[in-house]
Nucleic acid binder design. Structure first.
Lengths: 339, 339
DNA sequence: AGTCCGCATGAAAACGTTTACGTTGGCGCC
DNA sequence: GGCGCCAACGTAAACGTTTTCATGCGGACT
């Protein structure tokens, strides 16, 4: 037996399909008696409305899509967790789609989500204003995460990369470290460049005569390890190292350990993100905490708002707060807050 | 302007909608010339077929759903990553739904996925045969992950909990440790009980006179920490500890460290799962590796197979292989393999 | 040269809903 | 007691596809 349709319920309850729809969807216009009869019939037949049919006529899918670059690593798993939590709280389904290498692939992903979602959460480096205009039906609500796109055209939610970097560098300097080196993120990456900007700004402000040291990295643990080796090879070792993300800091820590360099006695170290791993390495890593799950939750809630009253509100750009969490890889002890 | 429909394309190309459908879906029966004209028109109008309409008539959604208990922790993030990878490779969309506390909630989740998915991946303790029969339209393909449900009614893919536990306990014993204690998982949990069964069996076989020591845990880090304390408080400390999962092993390690007990010199330790964190704790954790991402990939591929030819194949029960990965928390050095 | 066949194309039904609109009936009011 | 009104309910259109079936046409075969 195929799944029961609304017609079956109507026949069973001896009413028309319209009444069934009304009774089940709550909008009045049905006697309590008939409504009860209809509900009973629906129950008996195990009736479940066909989602596709409803989408077609309603133009609402009750689903949001999330376009992510990759699902690897704790950052994204936390992010998606936050999104999922908020989505369920709102009664929305979540369609995920990850790993969009090139722009072509991303475009295909966007297109294939067409009509399956009420809105889109996008976190991707490849995506700029031009891309969005070209591939998005402009009616589709979108919220951009951590995106360089700033114009008033789209909703954007960013991590406070700049502020976090400034605060961390300042913290390291105030803890007594003379010089701070940066392990940078991948060139072209928005978060990476913002963090580097923060580093440079903080150095200029709080340690104007100290030398700037920047070694390359790409957010991976391996690149952090290599960067650590490079830093040790220098004639003048920095007193402290600020890695643009935690994974690189972890790699760097391993390089120091392998070289017999003590952290934090010989050299201080700090990261960015506060992924769970930071608590488990020894010594535990000082880092900039961004509440990743909250980040996802916030993004979804903004998107849901936009979906509910379309086009009303003017695009907003929010920035998420951060916290400096002091653990064991740096000298100081002074926790600092900012939101 | 609303999104272009197939009718718009038909008008633009001066053909009927039927021809447009044929040309775009490849089914043949269209002249090369008209097909080109249609494609050109579609391109010009930025035509994207409406997913819901297509689902309605086709009864295929090209989407699979994943029901997970929670998205927290590295196990699930790896799992979902594997699923997503395989789904994209197959051209399928992925609808995730997590955290189904009670059976009622799980039932609601299943029902709400009705008609939005072609098949379901389910990983949940609450779900047993009766539940499935009651809430699933029996036409819907399902693959159960790590489920106690064994009957020939459903497809099941399991981690080799039992085999992994046996191998690890054997390894610890053969490395020279006289006694092995177990930190158990939550009562009622399938994985936990299978691992415990493996522990008991291996102890009976390879160390028949050694005492069995089992302390309670619930798979969380905190419970591992408490279990570690309990073990140290005993008059007879075990020579080695086998935690039923990695997070508890990590917690236990912290308890030992806080008590000044050296690992592995004073006591050996091993976990289960091989989540990424195990590599970063010091000393690095010996554990049973299950390739979680592969687990997800495998599950999705089996589901996709079932979806493609419905009802044909008889339900299968697969078991995923494992590896003992020897790191620094146990004495021995002998890597061991099994698949 | 007439018939038939195959192929490109079009018309229309179907999928399962929601919803605008029309119809019925009962009831109050004058 | 007739008139109109409102609430309850039914009818049918619409959403955008795919697919079956009918139609026409040209060419090959007899």
């Amino acid at each position: 037996m195929a799944a029961a349709t609304i017609k079956d319920v109507a026949r069973e309850a001896r009413v028309s399909v319209a009444s069934v729809s009304r009774a089940l969807n709550g909008g009045g216009g049905v006697t309590a008696a008939t409504s009860a009869r209809i509900h009973a019939a629906a129950e008996r037949l195990q009736y479940i409305p066909h989602a596709a049919a409803r989408m077609l006529i309603t133009r609402r899918t009750h689903t949001v899509g999330a376009l992510l670059p990759d699902l690897y690593g704790e950052f994204f798993s936390e992010l998606i967790r936050g999104i999922d939590l908020a989505a369920r709280a709102r009664g929305l389904h979540l369609l995920v789609s990850s790993s969009h290498g090139g722009a072509t692939e991303a475009a295909a992903a966007v297109r294939s989500m067409q009509g399956r979602v009420d809105g889109l959460l996008i976190l991707s480096e490849r995506v700029d204003t031009a891309f969005l205009r070209a591939n998005l039906p402009k009616a589709l609500p979108v919220v951009l995460l951590n995106s360089a796109v700033s114009g008033p055209a789209f909703h954007v939610i960013n991590i406070d990369n700049h502020g976090g970097a400034v605060a961390m560098v300042r913290h390291l300097l105030q803890a007594g470290h003379r010089s701070v080196a940066l392990i940078a993120g991948p060139p072209g990456n928005f978060d990476a460049s913002e963090r580097e900007r923060g580093y440079r700004e903080a150095m200029a402000k709080y340690a104007p005569r100290a030398a700037l040291t920047v070694v390359a990295g790409d957010f991976t643990e391996e690149s952090g390890y290599r960067a650590g080796q490079q830093l040790l090879a220098r004639t003048k070792r920095p007193a402290a190292v600020f890695a643009a993300n935690d994974m690189m800091a972890v790699g760097c820590l391993a390089a120091f350990k392998d070289a017999g360099v003590q952290v934090p006695e010989d050299i201080a170290l700090a990261g960015f993100d506060d992924i769970p791993i930071t608590r488990y390495v020894t010594p535990a890593l000082t880092t900039v905490r961004v509440r990743i799950a909250d980040f996802g939750r916030l993004a979804l809630e903004r998107l849901a708002d936009v979906v509910e009253r379309p086009g009303q509100e003017t695009p907003s750009a929010d920035t998420l707060g951060f916290e400096i969490v002091v653990r064991d890889t740096c000298g100081g002890n002074k926790p600092e807050k900012n939101s």
